[in-house]
Simulated scan of single mutants.
Amino acid sequence: MPNPNAIVSTRIDFDPPLDRPTAELLREGLWVVLEGGRRARLDASDARSSGFVQVLDELARRNAPVYLEIDPNSAAITRLLIPRVTRPMSMRPSDQGYELMLERSHARHALRRDNPDFATLEPLLRAALDSGQLLIITEDDAHNIIDIRAYTPGPDDAPLPPWPKPDSLPFERPWWKRLLDWIWRWPFWPWWWFRCVSKATAQQIFDAMSAKSCPPLTVPAPCIPFLYPDDGCWGRAHEMCRLMINMGRKPRKVWIQGSLHVATKNNPNCFVNWGWHVAPTLCVRQGWFWTQQMVIDPSLFATPVTQATWKGVQGDPSATLTPSDASIFYLWGNVTDPTYVETNKVLADYRLQLQNRAIQHGPPPYANCP
């Protein structure tokens, strides 16, 4: 059965209202009112509580769900996680249980057999996989699923249409158009050498992108949450392309798909697992009349790198690379986002995930990681 000390709620109200400084409210006694009239206390002696207020307030503004674990004796909040409203896209057996891909996520998620609620959660996932039902899925920092609830949209909630599955073939133009494009982009044509940027300029562009990184505890928009590498790469890549285009550059993108495992100091577990990943590329001059597409990925590197180097750190030699135009927001189905509305939603979601992690684990990088 679900953890009796855990609450998942799409209702988040404060008692008293947040009409005074948070520190003052905490001293006097601040509560969160949740679905079913359940209440949770924000402990003034807990250094995390002021941060919890910020996260809870933002979730309330979005009508988004929250997962809270409560001390049964004091009713104080001991843990806050931000669930996903999503659908399972695939579910395959693993040594520990099941590995899942979820909609609007490039992370690999796990339902482990050692989860005490495994027997309850597995059929919920299987049923949603067949029906396409939306679920509220909560997981820990290693992306182990710990809680699943059915999701019922409110009357004012916009429908969340399904995405094409990443195991389907990405959109491809006719072969003759691809051939013409290959001929046009052949890296030894002299005109490309003059149109591409120098190595020094590529580093300057990389540094400009990296400078947009979010301060973990405040995450002010429009910063980019590079320090939350777990998920959201398609939003980061699209925003970087927008910024590069505004700088007068012509970026492209490269997508990788496989069983990806990446070491990082920006996750408390020191690694992330992905099913796919994407980053912008720029044409960079390498020598006289020779050019190369270099990857701009501040979530993994401190400098532009070759596509081979970028692939090499992601832990799957058999992974496949697919280039695309910068306008492609999501490769499978050829989804675009010309107004950047969806991009901004993705960035906002993972800014909040970064902030919530930093409140509870401290800001990255994590000293325990090699």
Results as ranks from 00 to 15, higher is better:
residue 131 S to K: 05
residue 127 A to S: 13
residue 319 A to D: 11
residue 157 D to W: 07
residue 329 F to I: 04
residue 128 A to K: 03
residue 270 C to Y: 10
residue 201 T to R: 13
residue 70 I to H: 08
residue 11 R to I: 01
residue 213 S to F: 08
residue 166 P to C: 04
residue 311 K to Y: 04
residue 221 A to M: 03
residue 215 P to M: 02
residue 342 E to R: 14
residue 50 S to W: 11
residue 199 K to D: 00
residue 368 N to P: 10
residue 114 D to V: 00
residue 34 L to Q: 10
residue 300 L to D: 14
residue 295 V to Y: 11
residue 166 P to T: 05
residue 39 R to K: 15
residue 76 A to I: 05
residue 348 A to N: 15
residue 96 Q to H: 06
residue 212 K to P: 02
residue 188 F to Q: 03
residue 285 R to G: 00
residue 364 P to F: 12
residue 24 E to L: 10
residue 186 W to L: 09
residue 174 P to W: 06
residue 356 N to L: 12
residue 188 F to L: 03
residue 358 A to M: 14
residue 160 L to I: 15
residue 157 D to F: 06
residue 294 M to V: 01
residue 313 V to N: 13
residue 3 N to K: 09
residue 303 T to G: 02
residue 107 A to H: 07
residue 2 P to E: 00
residue 301 F to Q: 04
residue 198 S to K: 08
residue 185 R to G: 01
residue 94 S to K: 10
residue 164 P to S: 04
residue 307 Q to P: 06
residue 267 N to V: 15
residue 89 M to G: 06
residue 281 T to Q: 02
residue 342 E to L: 11
residue 296 I to F: 10
residue 81 L to Q: 12
residue 258 G to D: 09
residue 204 Q to H: 03
residue 210 S to P: 00
residue 2 P to F: 12
residue 2 P to A: 12
residue 119 A to W: 03
residue 6 A to T: 09
residue 151 Y to H: 14
residue 161 P to W: 08
residue 260 L to Q: 07
residue 186 W to S: 07
residue 283 C to I: 05
residue 75 A to G: 07
residue 236 R to N: 04
residue 284 V to G: 00
residue 334 N to C: 05
residue 42 L to S: 11
residue 232 G to P: 04
residue 40 A to M: 06
residue 353 Q to M: 15
residue 107 A to M: 09
residue 22 T to H: 13
residue 3 N to V: 08
residue 208 A to K: 07
residue 299 S to W: 12
residue 308 A to F: 13
residue 2 P to K: 05
residue 104 R to P: 04
residue 73 N to G: 13
residue 81 L to W: 10
residue 167 D to Q: 10
residue 167 D to L: 12
residue 308 A to C: 09
residue 192 W to N: 03
residue 286 Q to I: 04
residue 350 Y to R: 15
residue 353 Q to R: 15
residue 216 P to R: 06
residue 248 G to N: 05
residue 362 G to D: 12
residue 170 P to M: 01
residue 1 M to A: 01
residue 20 R to N: 08
residue 271 F to K: 06
